[in-house]
Amino acid sequence: MSALTLTSPAFANTADIPAIYTCDGHDSSPPLAWTAPPAGTRSLALIVEDPDAPDPAAPQRVWVHWVLYNLPPSAGSLPAGVHVDSLPPGTQQGLNDWKRTGYGGPCPPIGRHRYFFRLYALDKLLPDLGHPDKQRLVQAMQGHVLAQAELLGFYQR
Rank of each mutant, 00 (worst) to 15 (best):
D16F: 15
R61G: 01
G143I: 11
G94H: 06
C23Y: 09
T5I: 09
T91R: 12
P59G: 15
A149M: 13
L122K: 06
A53E: 15
M1I: 07
I110T: 11
G25T: 10
P88M: 09
A39N: 14
T14Q: 15
A147G: 06
H131R: 13
T22G: 00
R42V: 12
N70D: 15
S77L: 09
G76K: 03
H26M: 08
P72M: 03
S2N: 10
G76I: 01
L95A: 07
I17T: 02
P54R: 14
G153D: 04
A33F: 00
R114P: 01
P59E: 12
A33G: 14
L137Q: 10
R114W: 10
P106E: 09
D128I: 10
D128S: 04
A39E: 13
A140F: 08
N13Y: 05
T5S: 04
I47C: 01
T91P: 11
G76E: 02
R100Y: 02
H113G: 06
Q135Y: 06
H131C: 14
G105F: 06
L95V: 04
Q156W: 11
V84Y: 10
A45H: 13
S74Y: 00
R136I: 03
D85H: 13
L146A: 00
W98C: 02
D27Q: 02
I110V: 13
P38N: 12
T22C: 07
F11E: 06
T35I: 09
A39L: 02
N13V: 07
L44N: 06
Q142W: 05
P37A: 06
G90I: 07
L32Q: 03
H131D: 14
L137I: 12
P9Q: 07
V138C: 02
D85A: 09
T5Y: 04
P79H: 05
E150W: 09
R61Y: 02
Y69R: 09
L137V: 05
S77H: 15
D133A: 12
L78T: 00
T7W: 01
L137C: 01
S8K: 03
V82F: 13
G76Y: 01
T7N: 02
D27N: 07
V64G: 01
D128P: 00
T35Y: 00
G76M: 01
L78A: 14
F116P: 00
A80T: 13
G130V: 03
P89E: 11
G81M: 12
R136D: 03
G153T: 07
W63H: 14
F117Y: 14
E150C: 11
Y69C: 13
N13M: 08
